[in-house]
Amino acid sequence: MAKNIGRRVLQTLLVLFCVSLAIFILLRIVPGDAITTMMGEHADAETIARLTAEMDLDKPFYVQFWTYLKDICTGNFGTSYTLHKPVTELLAAAFPNTVKLALIAAAIAWMIGILCGVVAAVTKDGILDRLFMGFSLFGVSIPVFMVAMVLQYLIAYRLGWVSISGVEKWTGFILPAVALGWNSAGSIARLTRSTLVEVLQEDYIDTAKAKGLGRPAVIFLHALRNAMLPVITMMALQISSLLSGAVITETIFSINGIGRLAVDAITSRDIPLLQGTVLFTTVIVILGNLVADCLYTVLDPRIRKGA
């Protein structure tokens, strides 16, 4: 177990190193430079030279990278060029909104997704199955911005039940969460259905029935636990992608989250901020995968004992 964890940590560090290197290189290849971004187009040559020296931009690439690595190891992600605040502070301010949005979206999506999947699987080829699967196809195939705008128009504008954008009140999270969870619900429903249908054909389901267990017990105690294994992996991947910033949703509903921060960083060529958001979301994705693996070992004893 300790060996596994050790290997895992090493892998994580390696991935983080590669990602930071890649983003560092990419940001120096793209046109536009930091000084112009900061000072605007009319900065004089002297100021540019002074700032370039001050910010070590005249040093060779590897020196810059080494300084950057040393800084992030001490938790210093630099200062945003455009917002003139430490990147760590900006991330810390944006993250709670993203977390709330992601968790609400995931809760809605998974509840609906699993429920639809289970109902569809047990009524396989029946009316409910077709209805739910048609609905979920709708779910996976409609893009987020479309759902978001339709919801904004119908629920917020026409019916006026919630505000169109902003999350000053908690109800502001409902529409973005539904829009964001829409796709996830569709794919969870489809995956739950297909794995459950497969599991229900297994011999041990016959054994459970032969024992005299009722249908709900067979489905929930025996079938679902086996069927959930791949679904949980998908959930962990979904949560990490939800947490790493719902770029479109956050923009449409003007929520100050990680996704919007990243978009702002890109449009204003705010290199430290962009580096910070990318690295941060990388960590989230890696952690999400780690959690998925851990859950897997809890649910499936065959992995736990290393068989």
Binding site: D203, Y204, T207, D300, P301
Partner: peptide, 15 residues
């Protein structure tokens, strides 16, 4: 009660 042909697959692997 019934016993089945395949003891390998007749028991729930996660219980």
């Amino acid at each position: 009660s019934m016993i089945f042909q395949e003891p390998m697959t007749s028991l729930n692997p996660v219980v």
